[in-house]
């Protein structure tokens, strides 16, 4: 039996598995193109038009517009591709860590420091 057949959820964690990879294919493909400067420029000129090129759903487009990282994860986003999206916006992993946990960035950084004590 695959480890993915275990039905018990891992708290606070969404596994990027086949189900997510299918649901998020267009979203992740759009984010993957953001490796290229030309794509980043095009995205910035018209975010929703750019999303439409990759067939994002209305929910996914709304989550992009809202910079809703948790929402994007639930809609099939992979953190590695979403990193290209949020990175383009100038956000780092502590910024989005704070967004996902409902903490301030300072509180989130403090939580990381505490993990080492």
């Amino acid at each position: 039996m695959s480890y993915l057949d275990n039905p018990t959820p891992i708290p606070g964690t969404i596994l990027f598995d086949g189900k997510a990879a299918r649901k998020g294919y267009g979203l992740n493909k759009m984010c993957y193109t953001l490796n290229e400067q030309a794509a980043r420029d095009e995205f910035k000129q018209g975010e929703m038009a750019y999303c439409d090129k990759f067939g994002l759903t209305e929910e996914q487009k709304q989550a992009i517009a809202d910079r809703d990282v948790l929402g994007l994860l639930e809609l099939g986003g992979s953190i590695y591709y979403l990193a290209k999206f949020v990175g383009m916006l100038g956000l780092n992993m502590q910024d989005i860590g704070a967004m996902q946990t409902g903490m301030s960035v300072d509180e989130f950084k403090q939580k990381l420091v505490k993990a080492g004590e």
Partner: peptide, 13 residues
């Protein structure tokens, strides 16, 4: 480490 989800920031020293 954990980058994504509500458990972001999880570390197990």
């Amino acid at each position: 480490h954990q980058l994504d989800g509500e458990r972001a920031g999880f570390i197990n020293k």
